[in-house]
Design a binder for these strands. Structure first.
Length: 323
DNA sequence: AATGTAGTCAACCGCGAGGTT
DNA sequence: CAACCTCGCGGTTGACTACAT
């Protein structure tokens, strides 16, 4: 018996997602959490297969995604982790908060591969390229140059990033001949090292997705002061009423927040990087922009971080808030 | 300005793992 | 134990964009 398709493909839509579909998916997941993906399209009213929905959510719609190019530090981590793990993109991604396996894979194929080749490193083996693409150097010299190159990036990465670096630790543990043989203990070590590195990162960046279930939103940061809809949730604390009072009047019926029943998210305020959601929200004028004048009421992000009390919600609170 | 080429990245496809019946 | 189901992963594709000619 042949394998059944993941879903009945007749009549299902393929290709790029429309904003309306995104809206439906976000709305559904926010309301119901991440349940059986197979059932999602039906329940959410989407003509997509569950797989497509999952992919769209994990790679693009998730609120905790970082957008933009990988930083040098992230890139270095990818290189190191790739040396240890090979093309196990999801494993690699799990060490990079807010990054998806797809994103890392793409970045590897489009940027890092080239970079490494330029440096005379074979992206597959992480060893010096043999001949063609590198100037002919005697092998020992070649090795030295590669090592220098690696050290150079490491230094840059370390300088740029937090003080804790897994780089040196990885390198110390790295046995080139066996680097691609992944063992449980090796992976554990990597996990530990990466985790320790990100313990430090967390202190600067905010949170690590390793600790934030993507959809079962324990510990999702819930903002206050963002309750554009009249169904705003009482969980929002002090500032909720003031920030949007004026903006709500400028809302039209298409207000996405109303449509989405969005809970009051709190996004990182400093160096605002709210990922797609920024674009997403922007695209529906939900940045509470005043459409009449050019005065943009950026109340969504205006309150200084320290004025926004953070709430950690457990799932029940989250769901209650949504309802 | 028009066309060709390269680069980027969202999305798809097929497969395997693991769980359930 | 086999058949089936669901999910997640990695490889690949193709649409879109930027840049070059």
């Amino acid at each position: 018996m042949g394998r059944q398709p993941c879903c009945d493909k007749v009549g299902l839509k393929k290709g790029p997602w429309t904003s309306d579909e995104d809206k439906k998916l976000i709305n559904f997941i926010l309301a119901n959490g991440q349940c059986c993906w197979r059932a999602v399209p039906k329940l959410a009213g989407l003509l997509r297969c569950g797989k497509s929905c999952r992919l769209r959510w994990t790679n693009y719609l998730r609120p905790d995604l970082k957008r933009g190019l990988l930083s040098e530090y992230e890139e270095k981590m990818v290189i190191d982790l790739h040396a240890q793990l090979g093309n196990r993109w999801s494993k690699i991604a799990s060490h990079l908060p807010g990054r998806t396996d797809n994103e890392i894979k793409n970045h590897w194929n489009t940027h890092i591969k080239k970079k490494l080749r330029k440096m005379g490193i074979d992206p597959l083996t992480h060893k010096p390229l043999s001949t063609i693409e590198t100037p002919p150097l005697p092998p020992p010299q070649q090795e030295v140059q590669v090592q220098e190159n690696i050290q150079e990036i490491e230094q840059q990465a370390v300088q740029q990033s937090c003080s804790t670096s897994i780089v040196s630790e990885l390198d110390q543990n790295k046995e080139p001949e066996t680097s691609l043989q992944s063992t449980v203990t090796q992976e554990e070590e990597i996990n530990n090292m990466a985790a320790s590195a990100y313990d430090t990162m967390e202190q600067t960046d905010g949170f690590c997705i390793d600790e934030v279930p993507l959809i079962e939103p324990h510990e999702i940061l819930v903002p206050c002061g963002l309750s554009p809809s009249s169904t705003s949730i009482p969980t929002s604390s002090s500032s909720s009423s003031t920030s949007t009072s004026s903006s709500s009047s400028s809302y039209d019926s298409n207000n996405i927040l109303e449509d989405l029943l969005l809970p009051d998210f709190e996004w990182p305020i400093n160096n605002v990087d709210i990922g797609l959601w920024g674009d997403y929200l922007n695209s529906w004028d939900v940045l509470i922009s005043d459409v009449v004048g050019d005065r943009k009421q950026t109340t969504m992000f205006d309150p200084p971080l320290n004025q926004c009390s953070r709430m950690i919600l457990d799932q029940d609170s989250w769901i209650n808030g949504l309802l």
